[in-house]
Structure formats: structure tokens, C-alpha cells
């Protein structure tokens, strides 16, 4: 309890601001029904393409659906994308990076070539190619991102571990006769975690952008489900007469992205032991 209080007192402003933004997104994602004024899927032929007003703060689309409610409801899928598309790569990449960085040798050489291979392809093109093979849809999108994305985590982790394994406290742990699992998990991993957690935060924001891009291209979430990318795609045909259909979901992406970035920055500060 005191540790929690201490953490809160030491918490940097950016961490608190980021957490506040993400909390808003989280509430929208978990209980859209509580906040959204309308059913996001309900048609209202009496209010087609209405501009923002008191009744519809973000306006309505070509079926009279409330954009505010659809933007809120989309948080469910988009937050899901942010998490599901990144947790797999985070875990797999961390483990592989840790092992390859610590033990080196042949596995490290093979990993190095794999990194070269992956970074020479544009990430988006690679993901689109994999989704095209597997078929559109969220699950396949997660698989596609996961297949490529872990490499970036592993590369980051490997670099950190290669530096840390030469540190004297790691040598001291070896001389003290500690087992390798203990050295890896207690002495190396916690000290290597900071950059990878910060990158994870950025990656979640990027995953939402990527998910939205794929949604826009029709390869991710499928209509009529509300997803920010899908919403933007929906609005593109009406952009000249009804800008609000496109712009407000766009704001939501930016808002959520800022939340992750601030939280990541704050996390980096908080995890700096010398603070």
C-alpha cells in the first residue's frame, strides 16, 4: 500500500496524463453501452447525414447512425487490436531476444540474418501479403502482425541483453553460483525491460493505426462492426458533404495514440532507477 502511494507520488505528469486518456478509452471499450447515447448499429432514417448538433454531437452517417456512439463502440475492437496484436510479439520477442542475446552463438547468427530479412520488407506490405493468404478478418490480422512483429521486440531485447551480460553484477551472480534461469530472469530481464515496455506502448498505438489501415482496406475488422478504420473508410464517399463521419473517428485514433505515447514516456521515467 505504501509502495503504491510512493509510486503515485513519484509518478511523472506524463504517466498520469497518459493513464487518464487510456482510462477513458478503456471505459469506452469495456462498457460502450453506458456512455454511448444511441445504439451504434441502429438506423435512423429520420436523421441521415446530420452535422454535429446537440442531439448528435459528432453527427450521423448515411444510415442515420450516431457517429459518437459508433466511435465509442469502436474502442472495444481497437483496444482489442492494440492488445492482441502486440502481446504475442512482446512475449515471444522478449523470450527469444533474451536467450539469443545471452547465449549468442549459432542461434544469434541465424537470428541476425532473420532480422536482416524482415527489415528489408516494408512491414505493412508483409502484413497485407500474409492477410491476403489467410483471408481477411481480425484473427488473421493478429496472426499476420504477430508473425512479423516479434522480430522487432527480439532485436531490441537482444541488444539490451548483449550489453547487460557483460556487466559486473551479472559476472558477480555467476561467481555467486546462481543458476542461469535466476540470472536471466532476476538480474538481466528487469534491467532490460524498460526500452521494450516503452516500445510496447508505442507499438500499441501503431497497431491501432495498422488495424485501422487494414480495416480501411477491408482486410481487418468487417462492417458493420464499428472500428475506427472502418468508420473512416465508411465516410470517405461522403467526405465532401459530411466530413464528420471521417474526422471524429480520426480524432479518436489520435487521442488513443497520444494516450499510449504519454503513458510510455511516463513509464520510462518511472522505471529509471536513478530517479
Amino acid at each position: 500500500m505504501t509502495a503504491l502511494a510512493l509510486t503515485f507520488r513519484r509518478a511523472p505528469a506524463s504517466l498520469i496524463a497518459g493513464a487518464a486518456v487510456l482510462l477513458v478509452v478503456l471505459v469506452c471499450a469495456v462498457a460502450p453501452g453506458l456512455i454511448a447515447p444511441y445504439d451504434p448499429l441502429a438506423f435512423d432514417y429520420g436523421a441521415l447525414l446530420q452535422p454535429p448538433s446537440a442531439a448528435h454531437p459528432f453527427g450521423t452517417d448515411q444510415f442515420g447512425r450516431d457517429i459518437l456512439s459508433r466511435t465509442i463502440a469502436a474502442a472495444t475492437i481497437d483496444l482489442q487490436i492494440a492488445i492482441f496484436a502486440t502481446v504475442g510479439p512482446l512475449v515471444i520477442g522478449t523470450i527469444i531476444g533474451l536467450l539469443v542475446g545471452y547465449y549468442g552463438g549459432i542461434a544469434d547468427a541465424i537470428f541476425g540474418r532473420l532480422v536482416d530479412l524482415v527489415v528489408t520488407f516494408p512491414f505493412l506490405v508483409l502484413v497485407i501479403a500474409i492477410v491476403a493468404v489467410l483471408g481477411p478478418g481480425l484473427s488473421n490480422m493478429y496472426i499476420a502482425i504477430g508473425v512479423v512483429g516479434w522480430v522487432f521486440y527480439a532485436r531490441l531485447m537482444r541488444g539490451e541483453v548483449q550489453v547487460l551480460r557483460g556487466q559486473d553484477y551479472v559476472s558477480a551472480a555467476k561467481v555467486l553460483g546462481y543458476g542461469e534461469a535466476r540470472i536471466l530472469l532476476r538480474h538481466i530481464l528487469p534491467n532490460a525491460a524498460r526500452p521494450i515496455l516503452v516500445y510496447w506502448m508505442t507499438d500499441m498505438a501503431l497497431a491501432i493505426l495498422l488495424g485501422s489501415s487494414l480495416g480501411y482496406l477491408g482486410l481487418g475488422a468487417q462492417p458493420p462492426a464499428a472500428e475506427w478504420g472502418v468508420l473512416i473508410a465508411d465516410g470517405k464517399n461522403f467526405f465532401s458533404q459530411a466530413w464528420w463521419i471521417t474526422v471524429f473517428p480520426g480524432f479518436a485514433i489520435v487521442f488513443c495514440g497520444i494516450g499510449f505515447s504519454l503513458f510510455g514516456d511516463g513509464l520510462a521515467d518511472l522505471m529509471d532507477v536513478r530517479r
Binding site: D168, S171, L176, N191
Partner: peptide, 18 residues
Amino acid sequence: NRSVQMVFQDPYGSLNPR
């Protein structure tokens, strides 16, 4: 290693900061 221990040069690098 229990019998033969080592003390390192760098007082900043030889302790796990966490």
C-alpha cells in the same frame, strides 16, 4: 565458488540496480 569469491572494480557496475 562458495569458497572462492570475487570483488569487482567498478562500484557502479557490480551491483544490480534493481
